[in-house]
Design a protein around this nucleic acid. Sequence first.
DNA 1: TGCCAGGCCCTCTTTAGGGCCTT
Length: 203
Amino acid sequence: MPLTAVIDFETTGISPGCGDRATEVAIVLLEGGRVVDRFQSLMNAGVRIPSFITQLTGITNAMVAGAPDAAQVMTQASRFVGDAPLVAHNAAFDRKFWQAELDRAGLAAPQPFICTLLLSRRLYPQAPNHKLGSLVDFHGLPRTGQAHRALADAEMAVELLGQIQHDLRTRHRVASPDHALLMALQRCAKSAVGALMARHAST
DNA sequence: TGCCAGGCCCTCTTTAGGGCCTT
């Protein structure tokens, strides 16, 4: 059964290119849609956390000061993920920090990313918006833990991914909504979603 | 010097502009 790793970063800002760093990472490992393991850690990147980020996430400078070094955490995270595809909400954001933090640790980042934001825009155009929390509420999915903490947000992305795969099976009659189909769906134009679903629908 | 994201997607578009989404 192929593994899937759902990831979420908390960071000091939005751009590693402008010096922003990760402060926390959480990864939920799925096998056949079931949670089989979890990884979560604060990390100390040696940079100060802006006060508005602390207000947003609850993560303080004191908390990361007592956390393991960022390179040490990323080495553990990389081993935990292995070569499993990574899933994130707005994956462009988490991919930037995954690549930047692994690069700083001297590690490769070969994993492909699947984006629940892109998938939701294609599958749920009727949603009020496509923020992670809004989509969780839109589908009536459970919220666990504190929002804007890495593990709680990763768990919400797990629930959303499960809803996406459920809807592909039941509403679009896709027998096997595997990584390849999800990658194809997030890449295809919105106008081509119907044709893609038709090609993968079981008869 | 001063400023600083960036990919996706829609539309009053396509020789562009602006909102969304992540922290």
